[in-house]
Design a protein around this nucleic acid. Structure first.
Lengths: 345, 345
DNA sequence: CTCTTAACTTTACGTGTGTAAAAAAAGGAC
DNA sequence: GTCCTTTTTTTACACACGTAAAGTTAAGAG
């Protein structure tokens, strides 16, 4: 059962009786080798245990076939969905994906960028931390290789390829919906960990003013240095409900995790938000977090098209890598969100 | 602002006026170089842009300083928590972590194992898919380098280093609790995607019999080929509640995601599980999924010590790498779970 | 000034593979 | 059997750095 292990292609070549360059060609593209030789190689390969050295192969190629992905945070199903989409798309394109997580630490994010540079990665897909990001590190990465931002786009780097959600549209959509079928909503902000937070706030304000309502924003006081969104939503609303406020209002949460905290606060006060309850409490979110359908009441929200974002990001980086497109002509792709009407609003 | 870019250490050495071997020593361990020289190098480094080539450095070292991690699934906060713990611990030990996700596909898992072998990774930490895993691929990986299993342990590989939860203890603990403060629970199984599913079932049965109650298991009929736990929990209980069954029972779910579905089914039928409601419906879970506190009612569960598991796995792999321990003397480490008493049971 | 030692430079080879050019072999048509 | 084409082998260099040995320089003590 335990086959003899062969470490180098050289050894393998003598074991099989084929020259090393032929083996090299075989591993890169078997179509470059005669079928009869292929058979002989595969036959030999079945007798032994051999894997080409990853580093040696990448060291000397024009293209490493690797793309680096940076995500800011792991314990958030939005990013895992996005990452899944990216990995699947990259796999189909025959690319190896190396993922690094920033763990909400700019220094780690910067180090990940360095790592990708030292790997001569073909391209980098980055969902940045946001405000806190080490901008210079990211810009250095961008100046060195094909680079696409995902999800959140720092203000200081506006002219860079970007794929994300059209928050003006998505937040506008649910704001408009809430206004149309009930009372105009108040906005429960999220900690301003990135620029999306502000974009959504602004989109809410714009849509409210467009419809002739007065925007009203809640929960901006908290410091924005952490990702404990549920706590934030719950804490803000607990305080309001406890003093008898907002119990019959419509509340649009900046994202679903804030909304999850909001729903919990409501439930603790015996409140059941719902779209059927006319004039009563309504709570809505943003993102379509995978657990939304299982909350009670199931959370009405705007879905981000994570799948499209991931696919497009990979597609775009492939274009940049292929040189089909000059990178001084950046493209901003914003996908629309769509309503997921459930029970809560 | 844009510094001249230097590609190789050779170029750098002439630019700074230090020999290349000295630079090599400097990058590996500055303490091997005189302070005065260090200053000169760092001064020169500040003037240019240079990063040592990742592949070239790893190619020729005895140790690559990399550990490979495989997780089965991304969109599950249990695994992201575990991964986070592993990454933090590895970072502190100065290791580079390369993570690959199996996306619940045995072929992808096997390919990840191959990749790690081709990288001459120092060691591999694997949370396997379970039943479906390509056992031979994992065994080949294990035979080649330090190898530690996490979370789930296939039956066919019992004699391998493993770090996980003591399910007999954890499931026993919550079973005992439920029996002590109320009606003996029925067990709502999870799709049998891995061996933990069976371990928990068996632990439940054993504890029930020990206490003199008759075990009763629900939801084993569904095919176990997917990870849609919430759907599973909801579907099973919807059917029961709809026909008026189980509405006053205690229900122990095999994991929290199943419990989330169960809670939702309960809510849809106007049922509010709770420990205070004597003789009434109770629902409990397993794992302490991060969202448990925000469900309504907040989910009572047994917490897995993901942090300890991740840390221990890294510690163990370091021991194996360091040769402090022979790998034909595997160690099975099982961490106890602890009760998280909340409202639901 | 000489000696000793630490620090550095020079030189050379190793890591496993990609790749190009020239030479040799294989295969097929006539 | 000869010629031509396709495939393979031979040879050689490249990739960027690790590492060891031998020789050179610098620094400090006496």
């Amino acid at each position: 059962m335990t086959k003899p292990r062969i470490k180098t292609m050289e050894e393998l070549s003598v074991a099989i009786g084929v020259s090393r360059p032929t083996l090299s060609r075989f591993f890169q593209d078997p179509s470059l080798v005669k079928k009869k030789t292929i058979d002989r190689i595969e036959e030999g390969l079945a007798q032994v245990e051999y894997v080409p050295n990853f580093f040696a192969t990448r060291l000397n190629r024009k293209s490493t076939g690797i793309i680096g992905v940076i995500i800011p945070y792991l314990n958030d199903l939005f990013f895992t969905k996005l990452l899944e989409s990216v990995e699947v798309a990259a796999m189909e394109a025959g690319l190896t994906v190396i993922t690094q997580c920033s763990h909400s630490d700019p220094a780690i994010e910067a180090r990940a960028a360095e790592t990708f540079m030292s790997m001569n990665v073909d391209g980098a897909l980055v969902a940045p931390l946001g405000d806190q990001s080490d901008q210079s590190a990211l810009l250095r990465l961008k100046s060195r290789l094909p680079f696409v931002l995902m999800d959140s786009r720092p203000k200081t780097m506006p002219n860079i390829d970007f794929v994300g959600t059209n928050h003006a549209q998505s937040t506008g959509l649910i704001t408009e919906y809430l206004c149309r079928v009930g009372e105009p909503p108040i906005f429960l902000a999220m900690p301003r960990v990135n620029f999306n937070a502000m974009e959504r706030e602004n989109a809410y304000i714009a849509k409210m003013e467009e419809l002739g309502f007065e925007p009203q924003i809640l929960g901006t006081r908290l410091r924005g240095d952490d990702w404990h969104f549920e706590d934030h939503g719950q804490a803000v609303l607990e305080a309001e409900f406890a003093s008898g406020h907002l119990t019959e209002r419509s509340i649009l949460c900046a994202n679903d995790r804030v909304a999850i905290g909001a729903l919990h606060a409501a439930a603790r006060h015996g409140l059941t938000p719902g779209r059927t309850a006319k004039g009563g409490l309504r709570i809505a979110g943003h993102d379509d977090y995978p657990l939304c359908p299982y909350l009670y009441p199931a959370l009405t929200t705007v879905a981000q098209n994570t799948d499209a974002i991931g696919k497009k990001a990979v597609y775009r980086i492939l274009q940049l890598i292929g040189g089909e497109i000059s990178n001084d002509d950046p493209e901003i792709t914003l996908f629309d969100g769509h309503l997921e009407l459930r029970q809560s609003a």
